[in-house]
Design a protein around this nucleic acid. Sequence first.
RNA 1: GCCUGCGUGGCCCAGUGGUUACGGCGCGGGAUUGCUAAUCCCGUUUCCCUUGUGGAUUCCCAGGUUCGAAUCCUGGCGCAGGCGCCA
Length: 426
Amino acid sequence: MIDIQIIRKDPDLVKENIKRKLQYDKLKLVDEFTKKDAKWRKLKRNNDLLRTNRNKVSKEISEAKKQKKDIKSLLKKAKVIPDKITNNEKEMNKIREDLDSLLVQIPNIMHPDVPKGKSDKDNKVREIMGKPPKFSFKPKNHIKLGEMNGWLDFDASAETSGKGFYFMKGDLALLNQALINYARDFMVKAGYEYVEPPLMIRQDILKGVYTKAEIDQMAYKIQDEDLYLIATSEHPLIGMYFDKMLNHTQLPIKLTAYSMCFRKEIGSHGINEKGLYRTHQFNKQEMVVICHPKDSWKYYDELLKLSKDLFKKLKLPIRENESCTGDLSDLKARGADLEVWRPIEKIYQEITSVTNMTDAQARLLGIRFVDKDNQKMYPHTLNNTAIATSRALVAILENFQQKDGCVKVPKALQKYLGKTKIGGKK
RNA sequence: GCCUGCGUGGCCCAGUGGUUACGGCGCGGGAUUGCUAAUCCCGUUUCCCUUGUGGAUUCCCAGGUUCGAAUCCUGGCGCAGGCGCCA
């Protein structure tokens, strides 16, 4: 959520930001907000005056009672005030609700370097790392490779759990564990504290960042409980600090967590293809930073570099694709994806996603800190995928496959797996 | 699931209808004395305005009673302990 003071003090900045996102229909929200906010403040002043008056008379009654004086006339005077206050407050609250719903629709101020554009088609490729492999044979997709090696069984998972799940077996499942361990060690070595989070989370933590409609579309609800299966460990990691007051000496907080993630995946893409790329359940090593506002762009670069390095070591062909203004969701000040090469389709596809939300997320979740000069402020929050292993496995299988159907194991994973290749003809 | 207790500022804690929510810790600023620091003073919920010796607000949340609620009433949420169940 954007800082209300920015809209009050510099509405033009807020409008320019909206224009950069090409969300012209939202421009009127700023004027509407300014107008209603002025009205609210007028009512607030009026209300304060009414209360001053009420408090004054109440005090007089108290004094009169102490001195055993007659309070009848004072009581008569006092009794008419509460109704006025109630009416005034009703009007205030109504406007307050409008203001709050406007506020969440007004996007966070973006970093000036975010490339301008309308949709994901306008995202900007910043760097290409590694080269797509050249095959002397016709490469197979990960589903074919997985099934022919006995690693993946989508028929069985459809039987037990439905569409969007998988059974992963044997060396591929062990390679999955190797990836998890590799990413965990990588993050710990980079100075991030390893956290094992709850896999279920309360609605009010999610509500800080998502609307009810978004939650229902994304997260699985536990029957008869106020709990959802986590869609990413970012939520419990940030949620650890929900409504907390930190000290500047505690910052930056740098965390990494491994968890299963659960997503309904209802929406534009949906689960319309078999395979590991988009599933209801997947493994993810995540990273989160909560830092002083002055440092957040430094940590944005750090997070981005971490995921690049992590994938470079796996020798996968990847590229950095920065989200354009129109593709960034309203909370994000800047964001980029790493995308990995899919040799069959000959396209790059999203594999990690880094985001700086500046203070927008902290404001929604009530995460604050006391700075050196004793001022209370909102920290900046950032998050990034270290690795979503199912997507990494897709990339490894498809890019490192050999003619006989075996798959070369990246060197960085060999010590975890104890093998240089998996599968192939026996 | 049942029983009991609890929820007050960044933290701990006092406060059973009436000035400005007591006190301690921590933190920030200042003064003073000097030697691994001590002592003292001021400040430290949030919001609004005409920015100052200003006003309002705040005791888990939402209602209610009252001229006046941290305090009383109703409903809800959360936490802890005990018992049960399960591993």
